[in-house]
């Protein structure tokens, strides 16, 4: 046992606790799951970002990563499967002073929600999307999804998957995201820094976070546990900032290219809308109030 009394009068609190709904801990995530690590990085990024956290809104869809909204002590919305992005779009457009972060999983954002996320990126809506990619549907028991690497065993690909997988950074790059990065749950410092960057950057920003799913992905594919996966991330990740996103596709247990791939500027949705209406309507244009609630 640790004896702390002789060292300090009162041990400090875990610095992330004030930003979590600690009355809901322990969370539902399995031992060795990386979602908690990513959330840990997110809360630290929020603290360091110096953003006004009363104006932060976290929106999640459905799934294991979709539970993030329920654990953060901010205005938080746990929506329907795949629809976190359009909910966030409405939230942001009706009150642009909000900092809106979508925190969800790969199946939620890119299978059932795939149409929404490409259009939000195209419009350059000022929302920040953090996608925890654990390579399958975890909450429902480990079914294959659009990011599952070919040949992986899942409950719906019992003989090994054969569908090609999405390269998420490439997709988001092509759709128009102004910031695209990929890190793994091993890269806690880089991930935290990237999260701070997107909190400060206007426009549609996207971070893919690769995460172990020891219970469903690693176990069924005989790839060890969460710690083995973290070691794999450590050994096989190569940092290549600015890598062409067409070259960062993943395969089962191969090399992982991580880094910040895209960081560019494009006018954001509301800016474009206002400029167009002002130009066309002249004196008749009435700018929307700071919040549509006013």
């Amino acid at each position: 046992m640790i004896e702390t009394e002789d060292l300090v009068e009162a041990p400090p609190q875990n610095p992330v606790e004030p930003y979590l709904r600690t009355d809901r801990l322990p969370h539902i995530w399995c031992p060795g799951c990386g979602i908690g690590t990513s959330l840990n990085c997110f809360v630290r990024a929020l603290i360091e970002s110096k953003e006004d956290l009363d104006r932060l809104a976290v929106v999640s869809g459905i799934g294991c990563s979709g539970r993030v909204a329920g654990y953060v002590a901010f205005d938080s919305f746990h929506t329907t499967h795949g629809r976190a992005v359009p909910f966030a779009t409405g939230l942001k457009l009706a009150n642009p002073a909000l900092k809106v972060v979508v925190y969800s999983g790969d199946g939620d954002l890119f299978a059932i929600g795939g149409n929404h996320i490409i259009h939000a990126a195209r419009r350059n809506v000022d929302i920040k999307v953090i996608c925890v990619n654990n390579f399958l549907y975890a909450m429902t028991g480990g079914q294959s999804g659009p990011t599952t690497p070919p040949s992986s065993i899942t409950t719906t690909s019992p003989y090994g998957g054969f569908e090609p997988a999405f390269n998420l950074p490439h997709l988001m790059d092509a759709a128009g995201a102004v910031y695209v990065a990929r890190w793994t749950t091993f890269h806690v410092r880089q991930l935290t820094r990237a999260m701070i960057e997107i909190l400060h950057k206007p426009g549609f920003c996207f971070i893919e976070v690769l995460s172990p799913c020891p219970t469903l992905y690693e176990r069924r594919n005989k790839l060890g546990d969460g710690l083995d996966t973290m070691k794999y991330y450590k050994e096989k990740s190569k940092i290549r900032h600015g890598a062409p996103t067409s070259e960062v596709a993943l395969d089962k247990r191969g090399e992982i290219i991580v880094g910040k791939f895209v960081d560019r500027n494009r006018p954001e949705y509301l800016e474009l809308m206002r400029a167009q209406h002002r130009a066309q309507l002249g004196d008749r244009f009435v700018e929307a109030p700071a919040c549509l609630c006013d």
Partner: peptide, 18 residues
């Protein structure tokens, strides 16, 4: 992009105060 999106975008807007 579709009615699924339209019908939830309004819910987001409502929670923002609109």
């Amino acid at each position: 992009e579709d009615e699924l999106a339209a019908s939830i975008a309004i819910l987001g807007a409502v929670w923002a105060g609109a």
